[in-house]
Amino acid sequence: MAEPAKGQTLPFPDIDPIAFAIGPFAIRWYALAYLFGVILGAAYGYLLLRNARLWAEGRPPFKAEDIWDFAFWAMLSIVIGGRLGYVLFYNLGYYLENPAQIVNTLDGGMSYHGGMVGLILAVVVFTRVRGGNWLSGLDLIAAVGTIGLLLGRLANFINAELYGAPTDLPWGVVFPTDPLQVPRHPSQLYEAALEGLVLFLVIRFVTHIALGLRRPGLVAGIFGIGYSLARIAVEFVRLPDQQIGYLYGGWLTMGMLLSLPMLLIGVGLVVYAATRREPLLRRPEALS
């Protein structure tokens, strides 16, 4: 195993994973990332919903003011789905032996794919209850979801978790939680850049320049493709979960495996949205 090369690594920022504490209660950056991801996502979603010209027939999936009600649904669905996804996909044997630990989220066990499934179910139900197009609802969360991804991956970096394989590249980072203390790929920052910033800019172009929200399902499909490709690419330099390792004795990881269905669904949504007949855009007064 390579030894750390002096002068050729980036210093790890000495940031306490606990943002602040009030008596015995500690608030972690990871929890704040979830909270502000939902708040900022809801604020951006509000602006999208208000802009009737972006949507098919001038009709968003639900009224702009309803986004704050949905934010509560979103927070619950992400936490519940993320936790159940981690239990089922990443450490089922342990939790079957210790069922009381399933609700103990202090161990940090959360699955992005599980959280995404929970969020999809929440937006489909919420949108249908309000009489909107559920595909447009998926487009909405795809447009705002990159904000939460960016903040979440930055929180992973602060927690010194989910880091990458050893590297001799000049931007390698020695993480304080690494028992080997060797420079590693800051894979959390790779994901923050690709899944968060780059994907946000791509989707922003699609929603506001190409007017992709007028084709329900298109933005959601682009998100699925973009996230999956970014995640699979980073998985090549990101260490797999210790309790799982590489699957089938090779290079395949659980993150790659869970991203493949998302990739296929994304392609299907893009094909469907691009080939269906685009409805005429009605006047914005249709919202009243």
Rank of each mutant, 00 (worst) to 15 (best):
I232Y: 02
I18Q: 11
I225K: 04
Y86V: 10
Y246S: 06
A155P: 03
P240H: 08
V117Y: 11
N159V: 07
L54I: 11
M1F: 12
I141V: 14
T177A: 11
A142T: 05
G115E: 04
A233Q: 07
Y272M: 14
P170C: 03
G145H: 05
P279H: 00
A233F: 11
K6A: 15
H185C: 01
G109R: 04
T177S: 14
Q101L: 13
G41Y: 06
A233G: 01
P13D: 00
E65H: 13
A210W: 14
D107F: 09
A42R: 05
E161A: 08
E57M: 12
L32F: 12
L47K: 14
A74F: 13
V219D: 00
A42F: 04
G172L: 03
L247N: 00
Y95L: 12
G109H: 09
A52C: 08
R215W: 01
L154G: 03
A192C: 01
G108N: 06
S288T: 13
G224Y: 05
S228M: 08
E65M: 12
L48C: 09
L32H: 09
L218A: 04
T9G: 01
G212I: 12
D241F: 11
T167K: 06
V234L: 05
G249S: 09
P11E: 08
L199E: 00
P60G: 07
L287Q: 15
R53Y: 10
R128H: 06
L135E: 03
I244A: 02
E278Y: 02
A26F: 07
R231E: 03
G7S: 08
G82W: 10
S288M: 13
S77D: 04
